[in-house]
Amino acid sequence: MALLELEEVRAGYGPTSVLHGVSLSVPEGQIVSLLGANGAGKTTTLRSITGGVHWTGDIRFAGRSLRRMHTEDVVRCGIAHVPEGRGILTELTVDENLKLGSHLRRDGAAVRKDYDRVFEYFPVLRERRGLSASTLSGGEQQMLALARAFLMKPRLMLLDEPSLGLAPLIVRAIFEIIRTINTEDRVAVLLVEQNARLALEMSSDAYVLEVGRVAVSGTSSELKGNDAVRRSYLGY
């Protein structure tokens, strides 16, 4: 049984329906890519999972339906969602942002170890601990968002375009750490990306959304190898 399963999920904003029956699954410990053009409904899919939009169909996490659950309770089940725009609390310091990641945990010793790891991955965050998060650059904010998600000790991370607006070198570094977190801690990842080439390198499975429907799905290597799919859906 997969860790996360979406079954015929329909969702939208008020009268506008955006998802017209999306089904997908993320196996335990795997990275799954969710690709598609701008406006296809990738962000809306992630928002459905954490209860940010109203949806019908079914979404199950670790065998348990998330129907009618509030965002904060979904998150407490072990899902860390780094939203579009990163969700940095710019009124607070870097340290306070990190603390909000770990504030629900009771395993104090493990939390301290995880902080050490976070600062090892992203030394710049240690240097900026006391500063307002608003002073960070885009890349640093993405690092903070990822670090904070890691400190939540989730079973699943939802990452919404972590590469958006960042220089290639920084994107490399960030994806490297996503991979590390995935392999070392067996954290599953549902990765939304515009950069399909990059995402397919990381993931085991992939789904391509087209106007609110899954147009293609398969293993990442299948999709990478299929020229027709590449040309019509992935744009490279």
């Binding site: 954490t50 940010g52 509030h70 965002t71 904060e72 998150v75 407490r76 969602h81 939203p83 969700g87 940095i88 609390l89 710019t90 009124e91 607070l92 306070e96 603390k99 909000l100 990641g101 504030h103 629900l104 904070r148 939540m152």
Partner: peptide, 24 residues
């Protein structure tokens, strides 16, 4: 305090706070 931190977080960024498990 942690509760003070979550209060400030909820006040300034309700949406982002929810995603961190804060009962806004």
């Amino acid at each position: 305090t942690t509760v003070g931190l979550t209060m400030r977080a909820a006040a300034h960024h309700p949406e982002a706070s929810r995603l961190l498990g804060v009962h806004v």
